[in-house]
Computed example of a mutant assay.
Amino acid sequence: MEPYDYSQPTPQKSSDKKNYFIAALVVMAGLIGVLGFLYFQERGERESLSSRTVEQQRELLKANTKLDSISTQLDAKIAEIRMLGGNIDELMQMKNQLEEDKQALVNATANDVKKYEEKIRHYNEVLASKDKEIVRLREENGVLTTKNQELSASNEGLKTELSTAKQSYSDSISNLKTSNQELADKVTMAAALKAQNVMVYAINSRGKEREKIRADKIDQIRIAFGLNDNPLTEQNGKDIFVRVLDPAGAIISDMATGSGTFDYQHKEMIYTIKKQITYQGNGQMVDIIYKRGTPFKKGKHLIELYSEGFKIGEGTFEVRGGLF
């Protein structure tokens, strides 16, 4: 009788290994499904959180601007009521509370911003009520001034003081207008577009592009740049004006190829070409093609980009050799 070979697997053991392998595949497939679900769920939550953060930033900026405006109006009313002899205790308490609210707004959440809208409404109601009190105090002080003028000429000092107070009030109103305009300008400036990585490529008559530009090989140029992601910038249609300056500093323009004029810092400027885009706030790339009727001159050219009253970027390219 030959000895039994124990190294050979029995049919029962081979079947068990197959069943274990199938079970392992089922478990791995389940794990992959769960991990995939968790990944897309987390990604959705991150995108939702990012959107809420952008909206919260805008609401915080609006609330802060309103509080600054109320603070300026409050200072003006305190100055006049004090001058007219009225009680300013309530306004001083309001001023202290307003400063605390401005400090707390720095760390406010989306829900807190809604509460601030209610506070802002209350502050405006108090300011409106003080306007009536100021009118009454002015009338009372007007009567007293008239009587004092009839009694004695010594009230010249009082008139001078009143005139000074009126001037202070006028200055406060003027400062309020200036402050509001400065705040509006800051918001507008913060929302301005920014162009980055401005590049220029030469395109020959066969449509091929090159970074090295020769005057006798240029049919048109392609200006390419990216727009940074700015949550304060409205996502809508925007005109981008391009100015191309030759080596002598002269603006390259031709009405037949799309040139014109635009306003920049209260003066009219000539642009070489413009393009309208829809700002998407996602770091989008912009391409602008310009075809000139005459060859470019040899030397270094400057590209300037403008939009919505701001200069948003610039770049250069150099034309070598060729006809000019």
Rank of each mutant, 00 (worst) to 15 (best):
L60V: 08
K18G: 05
G322L: 15
L302E: 11
L61T: 01
E118A: 15
F21P: 06
I252S: 07
I213W: 07
G258Q: 00
K274C: 02
E314I: 00
I273C: 06
S168N: 07
A63Y: 03
L98R: 13
D101Q: 05
T146M: 14
E139V: 08
K62I: 11
A192W: 00
D219P: 07
V242K: 04
T164N: 09
N282S: 04
H266P: 00
Y6M: 09
Q93A: 04
T10C: 08
F324L: 12
L31K: 11
A24L: 10
D229T: 07
K298Q: 05
A202M: 05
N230K: 00
T278C: 07
G142M: 10
R210N: 08
K159Y: 06
S51N: 08
L25G: 04
D185R: 06
V106A: 11
S129A: 13
D16N: 10
L61N: 06
G322A: 11
E268W: 14
D263T: 12
L245R: 14
N96P: 00
E125A: 13
N87S: 09
L84Y: 03
A191M: 01
E140N: 13
D101R: 05
N204M: 12
E156H: 06
E2I: 14
F37Y: 15
E308T: 02
L127A: 01
R46P: 10
S170L: 13
M83V: 08
E117R: 12
S152N: 07
G322H: 01
L302T: 07
N204V: 03
N141P: 03
Q103K: 10
A224K: 03
G30V: 09
Q57F: 13
R58C: 06
L61S: 11
S152Q: 05
